[in-house]
Design a protein around this nucleic acid. Structure first.
Lengths: 342, 342
DNA sequence: GCGAAATCGGCGACCGGTTCCGTCAATCGG
DNA sequence: CCGATTGACGGAACCGGTCGCCGATTTCGC
């Protein structure tokens, strides 16, 4: 009940009979102050309940030891492991995570980009699928060397920063190869929004390979919708109620694959006997649902850790021209794929 | 290419021929500076690429407009919607989220609590299930009115702060009532770690009600493990290979319920014909798996939003004695529950 | 025993906005 | 027409650590 304000370094200094510099050093630079003096200061601080004011420290140092992670939907479980990878890597270097959810809304993107630009964070990892105008604009005006470090998790038009990404084109070819190998030749693709480069690449990889194999995907079997189960369910239902329906579906996410499975069940179609389904992401539930899901595995945690690693490297080295990195992927074959009927 | 440093408010002031006070006001207090002057300052700032340094602002104001959310495992999809609720609420008030993953590790808890205590954030929402020593200690030493605002998502021993929580006891009784109503009288409970209050309450609610109904749960049908599918799978297998096996299982999370379903399938037991299963959480996938999961619905997004709301209220009002809030829950009956066999 | 090197610790500028207080001029009321 | 009120803006203290610079004291080699 003594004081209502927190004690400052000056209070400690005065009472301990030393200078503020000594108090500061006692905390920040042990070894630059004699041990007895240091103990005296530390004990006093302890008794007075003194705590370093990190706002002042950050201000003085010109950094915050925080990084922003920008995603399009924080509630998407896809990001859970991704965050974990980033968090672990970041914390081991003393950085903390500031998670920004753009919700596809330009205003909130701007909020978070603004924080980066105004020094509330030291760097940015962006995994929203496309490049916010508010970020592209500064990068277009000034060389990236004058801006805070940024690492992107996809190749973004209008943003020349290091990337740590999935090779969506090649990964989708794995799915195509698998289905072709099983003998499918009438396949459908349920796409995420093709305005997002990643999904366009997934489609291109799949389509190019099937094309090369002489089994091109008919245009009317390429459908696009939101990233939700509901969307995929509706699309699947409409795909499957045509007369000449496909024998296999490649969905651009496990979430959508789940929606497809649900729709197929409602239609009385068996998986994989009547229809094969391949997902993308390898979410945790993919291997425990029934039937378990054949899907493209993405190393989500490693992905996050690597992106963070590159960002921290960029922060500490000041080198804005790091090499791009492709994360490895693989196709995990489970129970939703089989040869086509008959 | 002109300057390597960012311009400061003093640069703007000098070039515009006004004082720093005027520049500051031009940004923060429009209306306190004449419009022509203001325009001149703003234009100049724009041309020089000036941006407010938020570190300095935060420092000066003595706050950061950031709140910490502490969870035990950021990769647990359970938290996804919870985060979303917090994020939305926080951003609408100009606050940002700083997400801390304790991973059950005391060291990292300390890191984040330290950030709170040293002013790197203005408040804390804690949903880890129990109270870190590093947080309990300051609260034990000083009245909470002298510490930063904290809202807990569970009743924590040793932490007297407002809570926004689930009534685990009552919610579990909903599950018990449902199973009893179907005619089950030999039921098992797969618990989360009972050292965590929330799980202990779930067990107590379930056990008390079945007891009152004259159908007490035998001790050997109460098993405990980690929150993972693997753990639940193993526990279920051992439960079901006894001679007098239960006809229903209440799992303390959907994740664990999924593990149980998986194990049952492997044992050749049908759900719900041979065994009923009730989960807890109502995760997004609960309604699309096959069979869809009967579970206790938690309003996770609303929960997060409400907790955030209370925290912001505490921050702005300075009132540390807000009322506790219980979030509503309900049992969602789907396909994994049915009357017992025979 | 003496000078040089090493160690310790004080002084005070500094980081970049914010805001209190005060000046000066223009406007207003009577 | 003059004193009082209002509005715009400048001067400068201030937030709380950090660190370069420098003087003072101790230690050590020879």
């Amino acid at each position: 009940m003594s004081k209502t304000k927190n004690p400052t370094i000056r209070d400690i200094a005065r009472i301990a009979g030393v200078s503020t510099a000594t108090v500061s050093r006692a905390f920040a630079k042990p070894g630059q102050v004699a041990e007895p003096t240091r103990q005296r200061v530390l004990d006093l601080a302890e008794r007075l309940g003194y705590r370093l004011n990190m706002r002042a420290v950050d201000f003085r140092h010109g950094r915050t030891n925080a990084i922003i992670v920008l995603v399009s939907d924080i509630a998407n479980p896809f990001y859970s492991e991704f965050f974990k990878g980033i968090e672990e890597r970041a914390r081991s270097d003393g950085y903390i995570l500031l998670i920004g959810d753009t919700a596809g809304d330009a205003k909130s993107e701007e909020t978070y980009i603004g924080m980066l630009l105004t020094g509330r964070a030291d760097g940015l990892i962006i995994n929203t699928g496309f490049c916010p105008e508010s970020l592209a604009e500064p990068f277009a005006r000034s060389p990236s060397t004058m801006l805070p470090p940024v690492v992107s998790c996809a190749d973004l038009d209008g943003l020349d920063v290091p990337t740590v990404q999935i090779d969506n084109y090649r990964s989708s070819q794995l799915a195509a190869e698998h289905l072709l190998g099983l003998g499918h030749h009438r396949m459908a693709v349920i796409c995420g929004p093709l305005s997002i480069r990643g999904f366009a690449d997934r489609l291109a990889g799949f389509a190019d390979l099937t094309q090369r194999a002489g089994r091109p995907i008919p245009d009317d079997l390429i459908v696009t919708g939101g990233m939700t189960m509901e969307s995929a369910r509706a699309l699947t239902t409409s795909l499957m109620t045509r007369e000449d329906r496909p024998t296999a579906i490649f969905a651009h996410s496990d979430e959508m694959a789940m929606g497809a499975l649900h729709a197929l069940r409602n239609l009385g179609l068996r998986v994989p006997e009547d229809v094969s389904v391949v997902g993308y992401d390898d979410m945790n539930y993919a291997k425990v649902v029934t039937p378990s899901l054949t899907t493209v595995h993405l190393p989500r945690r490693l992905w996050g850790a690597t992106a963070c690693q590159q960002l921290l490297l960029q922060i500490s080295s000041g080198d804005h021209a790091l090499p791009n990195i492709d994360m490895p992927t693989e196709l995990i074959v489970r129970q939703t794929t089989a040869p086509p009927p008959r």
